[in-house]
């Protein structure tokens, strides 16, 4: 079995987001970038399946500028076997376009499992996995918190849905998107980081795909969220309860 793990380079989750003064987007210059945390969980899950001998090869795919090679490398340092970068000029493509590119890569690579984060923490779209599954006509299990491979070429996946957990059985090949509870990603060890430098990353130009990458959505402006009104400090529990009851009226 082969896994295709799709990873995105995003602003590190610990960085304070700053909106650009011209409102065109958020500041990404000189900002720490990392692998989208949900995609990291996807890499970890694929590697665990490989360690259980349920998967033979883990391929890490990213779509973005040359810098996304770093993101692929960190997946390789965790234990991925090889990488594919679909190189673009633009930093961001829309999920529908990304879905079409992943489909096209998948047509060539023929993975049994496509696994990726349920959403990226930059645009928060939560679409790509579902789009890929639809275009490939693979079954999908989104928001996975547990994954088990059965002997009959199916996966049993527990999904985090509102109000509880849903379990579905899906035939392989399939698409899984990961939620937080699925696992805790490992840290890459120094020897593995060194080893990852020798692993192969194929670079494909976006132009070699017959896909229209024009955006359908136009970002008119990006603003700071409304500020919260400055609050007050209260002296004791009594005044806290009094304020919550009589001023905020939430108790």
């Amino acid at each position: 079995m082969k896994a295709l793990v799709c990873v995105k380079r995003v602003i590190d989750y610990n960085v304070k987001i700053r909106v650009k003064s011209d409102k065109s987007g958020v500041e990404t210059d000189n900002v720490k970038m990392s692998m989208n945390p949900f995609d990291e969980i996807a890499v970890e899950e694929a590697i665990r399946l490989k360690e259980k001998n349920q998967i033979q090869e883990v391929v890490i795919l990213s779509i973005g500028t040359d810098k996304s090679q770093e993101t692929i490398r960190s997946g390789l340092a965790m234990g991925g076997d090889r990488g594919i970068l679909v190189k673009t000029e633009k930093d961001q493509l829309e999920p529908l376009t990304v879905g079409k590119i992943i489909k096209s890569v998948s047509d060539k690579e023929k993975p049994d499992l496509i696994i990726l984060g349920k959403q990226a923490i930059d645009d928060d779209c939560n679409q790509t996995g579902q789009i890929v599954a639809t275009l490939l006509e693979f079954p999908q299990a989104t928001f996975a918190s547990e994954l088990k491979k059965n002997n009959d070429n199916t996966l049993e996946v527990t999904r985090e849905v509102d109000g509880g957990l849903e379990t579905v059985k899906i035939n392989i090949p399939c698409v899984v998107t990961t939620d937080l509870r699925l696992n805790e990603p490992r840290y890459a060890s120094l020897p593995n980081i060194m080893k990852a430098k020798q692993k192969k990353i194929d670079v494909l130009e976006i132009g070699s795909f017959d896909i229209d990458i024009k955006d359908r959505l136009q970002i008119l402006e990006v603003n700071e969220p409304p500020e919260r009104k400055p609050g007050i400090k209260v002296d004791d529990v009594d005044s806290l309860v009094e304020k919550l009851k009589n001023e905020a009226k939430v108790l």
Partner: peptide
């Protein structure tokens, strides 16, 4: 191309949606 998780409707083709977990608000058409 779906528009996810809108929080405000500006017009029939323009919407607001939070990005970066609500640390910024994008107005998209």
């Amino acid at each position: 191309q779906q528009i996810s998780d809108i929080t405000k409707i500006i017009s029939d083709d323009t919407f607001e949606r939070p990005i970066y977990a609500g640390n910024a608000i994008a107005k998209v058409k």
